[in-house]
Design a protein around this nucleic acid. Structure first.
Length: 863
RNA sequence: GCCGGUGUGGUGAAAUGGCAGACACGACAGACUCAAAAUCUGUUAUACGCAAGUAUGUGGGGGUUCAAGUCCCUCCACCGGCACCA
């Protein structure tokens, strides 16, 4: 899922050898601490000792409370990482390391979302099997990620292209199929000739050049093709309602709400009066019924015409002979229009009269039926009742074609009659006028009463409508999960769960056919079963594997089930994933799809919660130093490997977190990273010194076993509290600044108390784990600090014995006065009145009011 | 157009309605050095002032409050999302 946008393949990270020779040699002289030695050493130590292995139920360690910190797993592209990728991963790693020290059993895994188009396109060009490309890229990504010192449990690494993994992706599809949530459709779908595949609505973006593929920005077009659909619309209500219980950014929840697009309203049935009969004045001769959806049933008295989508099946049936040519011509025009033209808001409305009339059920008025492309076949019933007085689109259309406008809602504020006929329509709520039995009712009541009336007369019904469409789930590609489906003529069925996984056949030619046949159709032996039936040749979209990967981490090796129920209860119980951090670009795709699958799995008893991700945070994008999005074309991409070589992984981790609030977009800064690098150097030199040969050695003379001073202890415990609270709130930038304050205090001491240094290292460990481990080791500890108890702030060092009170006159600071902490208002006022500044600023004035905030300030209001 | 977010020094940014600018970057000055780098120390919102100090200052305007970056109204700019969804 998580492709670094559009970047072309390139050879992974060879720093330009030779070009920067001079720089490199001087840089090596300048290294403030030997990170290049101890960082790889500790990374190896953690892996060899399985330091971060999380305990599953039944294993020692599982008696602890669990914490599940999840990263969005990457698509391993050929371009390798850039510094934006690890931002969220660093954040969850800090949280994970801190939680471990606080006694939690932490699940913090990483894996690969490795199906996808780039490897397949590379295969089309070079014939290299996507599996080989994928393996190579994964090796690169793994090496880069491990160089950053993340505390992943690598025994749980997963890969969506592994048959042992996608066996269960296929298994979930079978469950969807059996529940009737997977079906075949022949409706027109978005097809991308350049990519040789169909795309989901969500993967198509409207652009100035017309609709384009989200990936690669290629033109796309509508084609009627046989496709697999998933009935996500069946879950629309639950997907919407359950958002309320999630601790997600409000903006993201709002995006999902808008995407689901729930509207309450009514369906109303209009009888069609044939125009032939109408021509001779008779109102008999009912031909048919057209159903419309409206959110404003209260305006039914104002419906002066009706509009069908040009694709509406009734159009042929109702069009009169006189209008047939015009209607045919208009339909042809619309069909030839690009979707850009059709959805361009700037263009004026167009449409054609069908010659037919409908009867407004509420007043038996005959109203003309038009077709117009501003009514979409894909929403509601593909037909509307037009109320030009109270809808902007209907109003514009009515003005253009000179259709009647009847006002039926009066604004509560403006008097009736002031509105000119061609001014903007009133679309708000008010009370009903010109509406018979609704007159005088406020909009909400009028809606309810009209619906009751329609239901009673069997002319309509209450209806909830969603914008959400079903999920187009098939792709004409090779490098994806094959569908576990077999066709017998027009009949389809799923294969037995016992025959999973259905693996991909080997191919030599990965090119899709121009007419939209999938590459798998070329695997003749695979395609045809002995009994003559054939396999489905489509594959699943890349979203499939990422829909449920967080479950597989819990039980990655289980051959008998997607996840063991006891394991599921332990890791996913109550709140599911405790913390999920990733980019906002997945707001409606991955996060909606995954929620949908999770609810299906909940319904069939595989998982025990209805929502997968309890708390979700979007990290902000890291921009280039020029404040532009990092991209090869701007030449502003920063490669983490270069940063690690120059400053070390700890510096990179610390800097990305120090840059600013996690959620905010922020530019990279090369000088900024030197700041945190120097900070780490200062910590290093608190206990280490360099000898004549340039070797760093532990300096016992710098460390004392004597107790820290009271002042130092106060600073230390204030620091403990601040760092602990800030990590909990994911405010890593201020946590780091608290660490800096602490280090500045310690630097000033000629000899540092060991206890204070050790506390500092424990607080530092989540942020800069390599240095913390190394110095912890230098101080004589022989075990990793990853499970040392997290320092506790002692309240007795947090209370101050004295408070400095701000002295204000009329809200302006005029001095300070120190009193004993907890002093009464009277004591503070007396102390303030004793200040020389008091006489100076209140001389000749009357004191009208005195405001005292204990331990904070005193304000004299004078005049 | 609608929805959401952001706006604070030269820069990245701090700030339960209670001393705006913590912590860093950069800049300037000093120490160390033959010299430089690194390191250490100090200064650094703006204006006036030798200084003590005074005034001004959190996108613009208005309001609530003893007190507003913070709360309310309104406008502007930028970023993200949606966009003929009836």
């Amino acid at each position: 899922m998580f492709v670094a946008g559009g970047d072309a393949e390139r050879f992974p990270f060879h720093s330009e050898v030779g070009v920067v020779n001079w720089e490199v040699s001087t840089m090596q002289v300048r290294k403030q601490f030997p990170f290049a030695v101890f960082e790889p050493t500790w990374q190896q130590h953690w892996i060899e000792n399985s330091t971060f292995r999380a305990a599953n139920p039944g294993e020692p360690g599982s008696e602890k409370p669990k914490y599940y910190a999840l990263d969005m797993f990457p698509y391993p592209s050929g371009a390798g990482l850039h510094v934006g990728h690890p931002e969220g991963w660093i954040a969850t790693d800090i949280t994970s390391r801190c939680r471990r020290m606080r006694g939690f059993n932490v699940l913090h895994p990483m894996g690969w979302d490795a199906f996808g188009l780039p490897a397949e396109q590379y295969a089309v060009q070079t014939g290299t099997h996507p599996r080989d490309t994928t393996e190579k890229n994964i090796a690169t990504f793994r090496r880069q990620i491990q160089a950053l010192g993340f505390s992943y449990d690598w025994s749980r690494e997963i890969n969506t292209t592994d048959p042992a993994y996608y066996k269960w992706t296929q298994w979930i599809f079978i469950q969807l199929y059996k529940k009737g949530l997977a079906y075949v459709s022949h409706a027109p779908v978005w097809y991308c000739p350049a990519l040789g595949t169909v795309l989901a609505n969500e993967e198509v973006l409207p652009t100035l050049e017309g609709p384009r593929s989200e990936r690669g920005n290629h033109p796309v077009e509508r084609r009627p093709l046989r496709q697999w659909m998933l009935k996500i619309t069946a879950y629309a209500e639950r997907l919407l309602a359950d958002l309320d219980q999630l601790d997600w950014p409000e903006s993201l929840k709002e995006m999902q709400r808008n995407w689901i697009g729930r509207s309450e309203g009514a369906e109303v049935q209009f009888k069609v009066a044939s125009s032939e009969v109408a021509a001779d004045g008779s109102s008999a001769g009912i031909a048919d019924t057209i159903t419309v959806f409206t959110t404003r049933p209260d305006t039914l008295f104002g419906a002066t015409y009706m509009v069908l989508s040009p694709e509406h099946p009734f159009v042929e049936k109702i069009t009169t002979s006189e209008q047939r040519d015009a209607v045919q011509k208009y339909k042809a025009e619309v069909a030839n229009k690009s979707d850009l033209e059709r959805t361009d808001l700037a263009k004026s409305k167009s449409g054609v009269f069908t010659g037919a009339y409908a009867i407004n059920p509420v007043n038996s008025e005959k109203i003309p039926i038009w077709i117009a492309d501003y009514v979409l076949m894909g929403y509601g019933t593909g037909a509307i009742m037009a109320v030009p007085a109270h809808d902007e689109r209907d109003h514009e259309f009515a003005i253009k074609y000179n259709l009647p406008i009847i006002e039926v809602v009066e604004s509560l504020h403006s008097a009736a009659g002031l509105r000119e006929a061609d001014s903007a329509p009133f679309t708000g709520e008010g009370h009903a006028i010109n509406s018979g039995f609704l007159d005088g009712l406020p909009t909400a009541e009028a809606k309810a009463k009209m619906i009751d009336w329609l239901e009673e007369k069997k002319l309509g019904t209450r209806r909830i409508q969603y914008k959400l469409r079903d999920w187009l789930f098939s792709r004409q590609r090779y490098w994806g999960e094959p569908f576990p489906v077999i066709w017998n003529g027009d009949q389809h069925d799923v294969i037995s769960e016992n025959d999973l996984p259905l693996t991909l056949p080997e191919l030599t030619d990965y090119q899709p056919s121009p007419e939209g046949n999938a590459p798998l159709a070329k695997a003749k032996d695979w395609l045809k079963l002995p009994d003559g039936r054939i396999r489905e040749t489509n594959t699943m979209p890349q979203w499939a594997g990422s829909c449920w990967y967080y479950l597989r981490y819990c039980d990655p090796k289980n051959e008998h089930a997607l996840i063991d129920p006891a394991v599921e209860k332990y890791w996913m119980g109550e709140k599911g994933v405790d913390l999920y951090i990733g980019g906002a670009e997945h707001a409606v795709l991955h996060l909606l799809y995954a929620r949908f699958w999770h609810k299906v799995l909940f319904d069939i008893g595989v998982v025990s919660t209805s929502e997968p991700f309890h708390k979700l945070v979007n990290q902000g994008m890291i921009l280039g130093e020029d404040n532009r999005k990092m991209s090869k074309s701007w030449g502003n991409v920063i490669n983490p490997d270069d940063v690690v070589t120059e400053y070390g992984a700890d510096s990179l981790r610390l800097f990305e977190m120090f840059l600013g609030p996690l959620e905010q977009m922020k530019p990279w800064s090369t000088t900024g990273i030197e700041g945190v690098y120097r900070f780490l150097g200062r910590i290093w030199r608190l206990v280490m010194e360099e000898n004549q040969e340039g070797e760093w050695l532990f300096a016992p003379a710098k460390v004392t076993d004597a107790a820290p001073s009271l002042e130092l202890l106060r600073g230390l415990h204030a620091g403990i509290r601040k760092v602990t609270e800030d990590i909990e709130k994911l405010q890593f930038n201020t946590a780091i600044s608290a660490l800096m304050v602490l280090v500045n205090d310690l630097t000033k001491e000629p000899v540092r108390p060991r206890a204070a240094i050790e506390t500092l290292l424990l607080l530092l460990a989540p942020f800069a784990p390599h240095m913390a481990e190394e110095l912890w080791h230098q101080l004589g500890h022989d075990k990793t600090l990853a499970y040392e108890p997290w320092p506790q702030a002692d309240p007795k060092y947090l209370v101050q014995s004295e408070s400095e009170i701000v002295f204000q006159v009329n809200g302006k600071v005029r001095g300070h006065v120190t009193v004993a902490a907890g002093s009464s208002k009277e004591v503070i006022e007396a102390a303030a009145r004793a200040l020389p500044a008091f006489a100076e600023w209140t001389a000749g004035k009357t004191i009208r009011k005195v405001i005292v905030v204990p331990d904070k300030l005193i304000n004299f209001v004078v005049g």
